[in-house]
Design a protein around this nucleic acid. Structure first.
Length: 421
RNA sequence: GGAGAGGUGGCCGAGCCGGUCGAAGGCAGCCGCCUGCUAAGCGGUUGUGGGGGUAACACUCCACCCAGGGUUCGAAUCCCUGCCUCUCCGCCA
């Protein structure tokens, strides 16, 4: 969320931002409503001041057993006026609040302009796609041939876009989680294991609600939301808190299952593990001071890249353009891993700087040493990495002619075997 | 699931038969004084958000005693709803 006063005073910047994002929002009304709201607020406060002064006098009179009837009668109408004004203020606030909640973050100046994903910019590549002396298989074929991924039974148990990991497939999944958590904690990230059902406030704090309700699984009674990413519970660790400058940056890593409706993606990636309703992910989340956040996104992305490097999986780094940038993000790098079965790079991580956008929604502040007042922190997060897609990449990149899978060296301590067959 | 207690400032903790309570007291922090040093002692000071104001301070107004409603001229104090914590009983592990 952006600050109401900031929007009031920087309306041209907001217009440009929305334009860059190709994000149509009607902002004409906002300024007028705000003006009205402020005028009503001033009027209401003036009346309250009057009421406070007279009420105090009434108290004094009564304690001296003197008559206060005229004062009380005069204040009755004032109370009514205040109430009427406050009702109007509340109605106006609802409008401006809804408007602000649906306003996306402002892209950073370094974000390449563009209308959609076709104009994203490749920043760098790492590793060479392997040359196969046979026709590489898709991971779903590999998974079924080795009997380590069972899509039919996943569908029987739950439905489409669910799968059952078996034997070495399940173990590989677990090995990847542990490998990533160990690497991240060795880089200074604190491991946490948060709730995966969260309340409405948390979902609003990180920006999933109210705009993206249709993406989420919800439990009706009592009301809970299933997290679509660990970003939600982990960022909300510090919701409504004031942190100390010397404690920043705070870095967390968490493994959680993630749940997504994937509404509107019918027909996309229907086969395989790429797009599931439930998937595992290790996430990294940072709380930093404003002046460091654009350096932090580079190091955060570097941390995610190192996971792929250690697994020796070829990938490229993509800078999302303004038109493809997520709602809450000011800048995002996607990591895309090479999938031989599909002969293309596929997203495996997304690293974003949300600047103070989430922090303002979630009210996460910090105090500078020796200074009065508070500021909003900047929050960042990145997948490090999506487990299911990493497993896909391992299967497809490490497949051998005889149908077996070579276990990447980095994972052998976690797998106790060298080959899945 | 049944019964009860409670949620107050950075922390502890009074107030809770409505009025001068932004809130006693203690601790912690900060600034002075004192002291050969440390400790103790003495005095002062310390929240957040939003308006107005200022070059920036100052200053000033409003709101905030878990959250949201209500009663009242006036609510930390009374009423309702929700959330959370704790205790006992029951149930399940």
């Amino acid at each position: 969320m952006l600050d109401a006063r900031f929007v009031r005073e920087n309306i041209e910047l907001i217009k440009k931002s929305l334009d860059d994002r190709h994000y149509p929002v009607e902002i004409g009304e906002f300024l007028q409503i705000e003006e009205k709201r402020l005028a009503f607020q001033r009027a209401s406060e003036e009346l309250r001041n009057k009421r406070n002064v007279v009420s105090e006098e009434i108290g004094r009179l009564k304690s001296r057993k003197q008559d206060a009837t005229p004062q009380i009668e005069a204040m009755q109408s004032v109370a009514d006026q205040i109430k009427a004004l406050d009702d109007q203020i509340k109605a106006l606030e609802e409008k401006t609040g809804a408007f602000l909640l649906n306003l996306p973050n402002i892209p950073h100046e370094s974000v390449p302009p563009g209308k959609d994903e076709s104009e994203n910019v490749e920043v760098r590549r790492w590793g060479e796609p392997r040359q196969f002396d046979f026709e590489p298989l898709n991971h779903w074929d590999i998974g079924e041939l080795l009997d380590i991924i069972d899509f039919d039974r996943g569908a029987k148990i739950a439905g489409a876009r669910f799968s059952l990991m078996k034997g070495m497939g399940a173990k590989l999944e677990r090995a990847l989680m542990n490998f990533m958590l160990d690497l991240n904690t060795s880089k200074g990230y604190k491991e946490v294991f948060p709730p995966i059902l969260v309340n409405r406030e948390s979902m609003t704090g990180t920006g999933q609600l109210p705009k993206f309700e249709q993406e989420l699984f919800r439990i009706a009674d009592p009301e809970f939301y299933l997290i679509p990413t660990a970003e939600v519970p982990v960022t909300n660790i510090h919701r409504n808190e004031i942190l100390n400058e010397q404690d920043l940056p705070l870095s967390y890593t968490a493994y959680t299952p993630c749940f997504r409706r994937e509404a509107g993606s019918y027909g996309k990636d229907v086969r395989g593990l790429i797009r599931q309703h439930q998937f595992n992910k290790v996430e990294m989340v940072k709380f930093v001071t404003p002046e460091t956040s654009f350096d932090e996104i580079e190091s955060l992305t570097g941390n995610a890249e190192e996971i792929l490097q250690r697994l020796e999986l070829p990938y490229r780094v993509i800078a999302l353009c303004t038109g493809d940038l997520g709602f809450s993000s000011a800048k995002t790098y996607d990591l895309e891993v090479w999938l031989p079965g599909q002969q293309r790079y596929r997203e495996i991580s997304s690293c974003s700087n949300f600047t103070d956008f989430q922090a303002r929604r979630a009210n996460i502040r910090f105090r500078r040493q020796g200074k009065k007042g508070t500021e909003f922190v900047h929050t960042l997060n990145g997948s490090g990495l999506a487990i299911g897609r990493t497993l896909v990449a391992v299967l497809e990149n490490y497949q051998q002619k005889n149908g077996s899978i070579l276990v990447p060296a980095a994972l052998r301590p976690y797998m106790d075997i060298e080959v899945i067959q």
